[in-house]
Amino acid sequence: MTDRFISIEGIARRYPATGGGVTTVFEDLWFSMAKGEFACIIGHSGCGKTTVLNILAGLDAPDDGAVIVDGRAIDGPSLDRAVIFQGHSLLPWRTALGNVAYAVAARHRDWPKAKVTDHALRFIEKVGLKGSEHKKPSELSGGMKQRVGIARALSIEPKIMLMDEPFSALDALTRGTLQDEVRRICLETGQTGFMITHDVDEAIYLADRIVLMTNGPQAMIAEIVENPLPRDRQRTEMHHHPDFYAVRNHLIDFLVARSKTFRDGVPADHDRRRPPVVRPVAGPSPVAGARKVA
């Protein structure tokens, strides 16, 4: 069961197209994740990444297929799956503490107010915002707002964290610290993480596996890249690892070229239920240092 903690089974999403007909954003998407695993999904804007994440969150429903989490099909949002939205999505009329406490009170409806506040403060502290808990979002910097968003997601102690380009609006320095923060917390708590990102280095640093999605419409999973870097990698050191550039080049090649052309020449043995798994490593190898696994 644990190696299929999250199982995306043949989902599709369609919208009515302008001028009749339907547009299929993606269809027949299969992917599963083990408990404690961290996966990133990369692909160009509009290919349907947010839609996949919203389906995982239970905010949107697939037109075909289903998503099974922990043995049960998703039929709506759940406190077990926390979402960090693109853009901070804090409630501007509440303080930082108020935003986190709102989530805590939703999780623990029987807790007295003092206990809720205590719990919320613990998570504010965990993301390094002690002293700013009484500030409104408008008084916080972009990085601080995103930290509150992370604290809010963590405070409900979910089984899964779903993150939609959480750091894309931040400067490089802040992004780096928050990546460290998220990785530390996920490793510490054995959190299962699913993140959308445009940043290849972010994906390599955070993810155990990286899902490559082709351009939409009718997007598909081209392949799944296994991260060859060791689990105890450091953000500031990882580019010295011999395999780093093999993965990085592989991902960039995909984004630059193959994401567009993949669908025109899908390999005959491509199985949508089991997309090819690739583990790019340094050294001579036919496909840009990529070695197909299994």
Partner: peptide, 10 residues
């Protein structure tokens, strides 16, 4: 997104 925040919190 504010409504969605509440929805994900059930």
């Amino acid at each position: 997104e504010w409504v969605n925040v509440a929805r994900t919190l059930e």
